[in-house]
């Protein structure tokens, strides 16, 4: 009896079906490229996908409230370009302050999104689409057609250097914090409540508008942070950086079982989803797929993973239903 309920609990969770998918993926890749699961590779996967993984946390919160934010990589570029320019023109070189400024810019961008969506009752995709154009354009405008490059960000880029533990710590802290906040704090529960049923949440005394605004602020903050990290990890700031990569972040969340209609999704699932996206990107050149066909294969895998997830979920639901009938 005890065991059965644990099994039922396991199969009912989306993370379980996701783990199956992840395992299948890893087995296939390891057969094709036996050294794939080496320490160096895992380290590089995490480092090179820090941005997606960090932003996926914010997207989780946004999507939990049934929202979406497609302006994140534009915010990233704007924040990243700003701190890049600050260094290029020798205005500021303090790593800590640069992090603060970049994140603050993101926070402001997120606040604008949030306030318009919450107070103006504007569809999130539209509002963030407007800002997607605006912040990306602003990144170009402030860059004045220049890049911040290796020599400009010399000291600062040590933080994100291959071998530095900085990005990993940020990643770890972010995920642990969000895991705790989303699971055990009132704020976390509020986000779920607003997403699951805004009406009910309002009646039960939750300030829905404030929750929604804060969710977009979190997203903006993380996008700004990702902008700073991007400049540090790649030792360059270009106005087109991470262009169109918001879709990777959204895909990571959806693969991780976050529902786009709100109320459902977890930090663990998001992590697994982001990991799957990262592994696909890393594995494609390693397993010897022709360079030209890599995008095609990437698309097929993403779609296959999403559909596979649906099918396993359906099977699990059916089994659970059968068991209940017994």
């Amino acid at each position: 009896m005890e065991k059965k309920s644990l099994w039922a609990k396991l199969t009912a969770s989306r993370e379980a079906s996701l783990l199956v998918v992840l395992a299948v993926l890893l087995i296939v890749i390891s057969i094709l490229s036996p050294t794939f699961l080496s320490f160096t590779n895992v380290r590089q996967i995490l480092l090179n996908n820090t941005l997606t993984m960090v932003m996926a946390l914010g997207m989780l919160c946004v999507m939990l409230t049934a929202g979406i934010d497609i302006s994140i990589t534009s915010t990233l570029a704007f924040a990243g370009m700003t701190i890049g320019m600050l260094q290029k023109y020798d205005i500021l070189h303090n790593t800590f302050l640069l992090f603060v400024i970049g994140s603050a810019i993101g926070l402001v961008c997120g606040f604008l999104n949030g306030i318009i969506i919450a107070k103006g009752k504007v569809a999130p995709i539209i509002c963030t689409m407007g800002f997607m154009y605006i912040w990306r354009g602003m990144a170009y405008v402030i860059s004045g057609n220049a890049w911040a490059s290796g020599q400009d960000v010399a000291g600062f880029s040590d933080f994100g250097k291959d071998g530095s533990i900085g990005p990993y710590i940020i990643l770890l802290v972010a995920y642990v914090t969000f895991f705790i906040v989303m699971k055990w704090t009132r704020f976390g529960r509020r986000i779920y409540a607003v997403g699951a049923n805004p009406e009910a949440a309002r009646i039960s005394g939750i300030n829905v508008d404030r929750t929604i605004t804060s969710v977009y602020m979190i997203m903006g903050f993380l996008a700004g942070l990702a902008g700073v990290l991007s400049v540090s990890i790649y030792a360059s700031a270009q106005p087109n950086m991470q262009y169109a990569k918001e879709m990777d972040v959204i895909a990571a969340c959806v693969i991780g079982g976050v529902s786009m209609s709100g109320g459902r999704g977890s930090v663990v699932g998001t992590f697994l989803g982001a990991l799957i996206i990262a592994i696909i990107a890393k594995a494609l050149p390693l397993v010897g797929i022709d360079a030209i066909a890599q995008n095609l294969v990437k698309g097929i895998i993403i779609l296959a993973v999403v559909i596979l997830n649906v099918i396993t979920q359906r099977m699990m639901d059916r089994q659970n239903l059968l068991r209940r009938e017994l």
Binding site: N48, L51, Y234, Q242, A281, P285
Partner: peptide, 12 residues
């Protein structure tokens, strides 16, 4: 793209 170029270099 810096990110993809990095991935590709590491793969090489």
């Amino acid at each position: 793209e810096p990110q993809k170029s990095t991935d590709q270099t590491q793969a090489l």
